[in-house]
Amino acid sequence: MNILDALEAQINILRSTILLQRRCASTSDDIKPRTSEVPHLSRQGMTVTPRQQEVIAQLSQGFSNRQIARRLGMSEATVKSHLYAAYRKLGVSSRSEAIIEVLKQEE
Protein backbone atom coordinates (compact mmCIF):
# COMPACT_ATOMS: atom_id res chain seq x y z
CA MET A 1 0.00 0.00 0.00
CA ASN A 2 1.48 3.34 -0.96
CA ILE A 3 0.96 6.63 0.84
CA LEU A 4 -1.90 7.74 -1.45
CA ASP A 5 -3.79 4.51 -0.80
CA ALA A 6 -3.29 4.95 2.94
CA LEU A 7 -4.55 8.54 2.80
CA GLU A 8 -7.55 7.53 0.71
CA ALA A 9 -8.40 4.82 3.24
CA GLN A 10 -8.17 7.31 6.12
CA ILE A 11 -10.38 9.80 4.28
CA ASN A 12 -12.95 7.09 3.65
CA ILE A 13 -12.88 6.05 7.29
CA LEU A 14 -13.43 9.66 8.34
CA ARG A 15 -16.33 10.04 5.91
CA SER A 16 -17.99 6.89 7.15
CA THR A 17 -17.44 7.92 10.77
CA ILE A 18 -19.13 11.26 10.14
CA LEU A 19 -22.07 9.58 8.42
CA LEU A 20 -22.48 7.06 11.21
CA GLN A 21 -22.22 9.75 13.89
CA ARG A 22 -24.95 11.74 12.19
CA ARG A 23 -27.11 8.65 11.87
CA CYS A 24 -26.61 7.63 15.49
CA ALA A 25 -26.75 11.12 17.01
CA SER A 26 -30.22 10.53 18.38
CA THR A 27 -29.57 6.97 19.56
CA SER A 28 -28.06 5.85 22.83
CA ASP A 29 -24.36 5.08 23.22
CA ASP A 30 -24.80 1.31 23.36
CA ILE A 31 -21.64 -0.63 22.62
CA LYS A 32 -23.39 -3.03 20.26
CA PRO A 33 -25.29 -1.52 17.34
CA ARG A 34 -28.83 -2.73 16.90
CA THR A 35 -29.26 -4.75 13.72
CA SER A 36 -31.98 -2.34 12.59
CA GLU A 37 -29.44 0.52 12.70
CA VAL A 38 -26.94 -1.29 10.48
CA PRO A 39 -27.38 -0.73 6.75
CA HIS A 40 -28.69 -3.68 4.72
CA LEU A 41 -25.82 -4.77 2.52
CA SER A 42 -25.93 -7.00 -0.52
CA ARG A 43 -24.51 -7.41 -3.97
CA GLN A 44 -25.15 -9.90 -6.75
CA GLY A 45 -27.98 -11.56 -4.85
CA MET A 46 -25.88 -12.42 -1.80
CA THR A 47 -26.97 -10.76 1.44
CA VAL A 48 -24.60 -10.03 4.29
CA THR A 49 -25.83 -11.56 7.56
CA PRO A 50 -26.88 -9.31 10.45
CA ARG A 51 -23.75 -10.26 12.42
CA GLN A 52 -21.53 -9.49 9.41
CA GLN A 53 -23.32 -6.15 9.13
CA GLU A 54 -22.52 -5.40 12.77
CA VAL A 55 -18.85 -6.19 12.16
CA ILE A 56 -18.79 -3.96 9.06
CA ALA A 57 -20.46 -1.14 11.00
CA GLN A 58 -17.65 -1.33 13.57
CA LEU A 59 -15.09 -1.53 10.76
CA SER A 60 -16.49 1.62 9.18
CA GLN A 61 -15.98 3.42 12.48
CA GLY A 62 -12.26 2.71 12.19
CA PHE A 63 -11.91 -0.04 14.80
CA SER A 64 -9.25 -2.74 14.49
CA ASN A 65 -10.21 -6.42 14.40
CA ARG A 66 -9.17 -6.75 18.04
CA GLN A 67 -11.32 -3.77 19.07
CA ILE A 68 -14.29 -5.08 17.07
CA ALA A 69 -13.93 -8.48 18.76
CA ARG A 70 -13.98 -6.90 22.21
CA ARG A 71 -16.89 -4.60 21.41
CA LEU A 72 -19.04 -7.39 19.95
CA GLY A 73 -18.01 -10.16 22.36
CA MET A 74 -16.36 -12.52 19.90
CA SER A 75 -12.87 -13.72 19.10
CA GLU A 76 -10.61 -11.91 16.69
CA ALA A 77 -10.65 -15.01 14.46
CA THR A 78 -14.45 -14.79 14.30
CA VAL A 79 -14.22 -11.13 13.28
CA LYS A 80 -11.82 -12.08 10.49
CA SER A 81 -14.16 -14.85 9.39
CA HIS A 82 -17.15 -12.47 9.27
CA LEU A 83 -15.12 -9.89 7.34
CA TYR A 84 -13.86 -12.46 4.83
CA ALA A 85 -17.39 -13.73 4.18
CA ALA A 86 -18.76 -10.18 3.89
CA TYR A 87 -15.96 -9.16 1.50
CA ARG A 88 -16.87 -12.08 -0.78
CA LYS A 89 -20.56 -11.19 -0.71
CA LEU A 90 -19.86 -7.50 -1.39
CA GLY A 91 -17.32 -8.26 -4.11
CA VAL A 92 -14.48 -6.39 -2.36
CA SER A 93 -11.03 -7.39 -1.18
CA SER A 94 -10.05 -4.84 1.47
CA ARG A 95 -11.28 -2.88 4.47
CA SER A 96 -11.33 0.40 2.56
CA GLU A 97 -13.27 -1.15 -0.36
CA ALA A 98 -15.82 -2.54 2.10
CA ILE A 99 -16.27 0.91 3.67
CA ILE A 100 -16.66 2.49 0.23
CA GLU A 101 -19.29 -0.14 -0.65
CA VAL A 102 -21.19 0.64 2.55
CA LEU A 103 -21.13 4.35 1.73
CA LYS A 104 -22.35 3.69 -1.82
CA GLN A 105 -25.25 1.58 -0.58
CA GLU A 106 -26.25 4.22 1.99
CA GLU A 107 -26.70 6.85 -0.73
Score class of each variant (00 low, 15 high):
Met1Gln: 06
Met1Cys: 08
Asp5Asn: 14
Asp5Phe: 02
Ala6Met: 14
Leu7Trp: 03
Leu7Arg: 10
Glu8Tyr: 01
Glu8Ala: 09
Ala9Cys: 04
Ile11Cys: 08
Ile11Ala: 09
Asn12Trp: 01
Asn12Val: 05
Ile13Thr: 15
Ile13Ala: 09
Leu14Lys: 11
Leu14Glu: 10
Leu14Met: 09
Arg15Ala: 06
Ser16Lys: 03
Ser16Cys: 09
Ile18Asp: 09
Leu19Gly: 05
Leu19Ala: 12
Leu19Ile: 10
Leu20Asn: 13
Arg22Ile: 08
Arg22Thr: 10
Ala25Cys: 09
Ala25Gln: 13
Ala25Val: 05
Ser26Cys: 07
Asp30His: 05
Asp30Tyr: 03
Ile31Tyr: 01
Ile31Thr: 12
Lys32Met: 08
Lys32Gly: 00
Arg34Ile: 06
Thr35Ile: 14
Ser36Met: 07
Glu37Ala: 11
Glu37Gly: 04
Val38Ala: 14
Pro39Phe: 01
Leu41Ser: 04
Leu41Lys: 07
Leu41Tyr: 00
Leu41Met: 05
Ser42Glu: 15
Ser42Lys: 13
Arg43Gly: 00
Arg43Thr: 05
Gln44His: 13
Gly45Lys: 03
Val48Leu: 03
Pro50Ser: 03
Pro50Leu: 04
Arg51Phe: 02
Arg51Thr: 11
Gln53Phe: 01
Glu54Cys: 15
Ile56Val: 13
Ala57Tyr: 14
Gln58Asn: 10
Gln58Ser: 13
Gln58His: 10
Leu59Phe: 01
Ser60Lys: 07
Ser60Ala: 14
Ser60Val: 05
Gln61Cys: 11
Gln61Ser: 10
Gln61Met: 12
Gly62Asn: 08
Phe63Ser: 06
Ser64Asn: 03
Asn65Gln: 11
Arg66Leu: 12
Gln67Pro: 03
Gln67Tyr: 02
Gln67Ile: 08
Ile68Lys: 08
Ala69Lys: 10
Ala69Leu: 06
Ala69Asn: 07
Arg70Trp: 05
Arg70Thr: 12
Arg71Gln: 14
Ser75Asp: 14
Glu76Cys: 11
Thr78His: 15
Val79Ser: 05
Lys80Gly: 15
Lys80Thr: 07
Ser81Lys: 13
His82Asn: 15
His82Glu: 13
Leu83Val: 08
Leu83Cys: 08
Tyr84Asp: 12
Tyr84Val: 07
Ala85Ser: 14
Ala86Ser: 15
Ala86Cys: 06
Tyr87Cys: 09
Tyr87Val: 04
Tyr87Pro: 01
Leu90Cys: 09
Gly91Cys: 06
Ser93Pro: 02
Ser94Arg: 05
Ser96His: 06
Ile99Asp: 06
Ile100Tyr: 02
Ile100His: 04
Glu101Val: 04
Val102Phe: 02
Val102Trp: 00
Leu103Ile: 15
Lys104His: 02
Lys104Pro: 00
Gln105Ala: 03
Glu106Tyr: 02
Glu107Leu: 10
